[in-house]
């Protein structure tokens, strides 16, 4: 083989880059991490079926935002007929009181950093499930 040293260096680099996830996980030793979600403090169901919420909640939030900010609607009737105020801080976090142990659990795992909290208030989580509302 010609230029064996350089070729082998190249091949090793190629494998190291492509197999990055393999050795990185080994180095970090955290192979079975999985988000552990806090139970919602109230409500029987979410504002939409759980399956839908798991994958499409950002769509719903986007829809809420548009309806509130553009159309001035504030009330959302969910699939069970319950009425909710369409509000990020006041509704979602009313039931999912502990943002850090609910929203952030998944988002950190999935490397999502919603920018909503630049403006929207995160109500303080209280263990009793009571929520101090922001505006």
């Amino acid at each position: 083989m010609y230029d064996a040293g350089k070729v082998i260096l190249g091949v090793v680099l190629f494998l190291a880059i492509l197999l990055f996830p393999v050795w990185y996980n080994l180095a970090k030793g955290q192979t079975d991490a999985e988000p552990e979600l806090a139970e919602p403090v109230k409500g029987e169901t979410c504002v939409a079926p759980t399956d839908y919420m798991r994958s499409n909640h950002m769509d719903l939030l986007d829809d809420w935002r548009d309806r509130v900010v553009r159309d001035g609607e504030r009330i959302y009737v969910d699939f069970t007929g319950n009425k909710h105020e369409m509000s990020l801080s006041n509704t979602c976090l009313d039931c999912h009181a502990d943002k850090a142990k609910f929203c952030d659990e998944c988002h950190t795992f999935m490397a999502v950093e919603p920018y909503c909290w630049d403006c929207h208030i995160i109500p303080e989580a209280t263990t009793a499930g009571e929520v101090t509302h922001g505006t």
Binding site: V22, N25, L26, T31, F109
Partner: peptide
């Protein structure tokens, strides 16, 4: 699109693949 999958599951599968589990 609304055909979205739950990508948390996708990650569990991805991590499973590279940790040979």
């Amino acid at each position: 699109t609304p055909l979205r999958v739950d990508i948390t599951d996708a990650k569990l599968m991805g991590v499973g693949l590279v940790t040979l589990d």
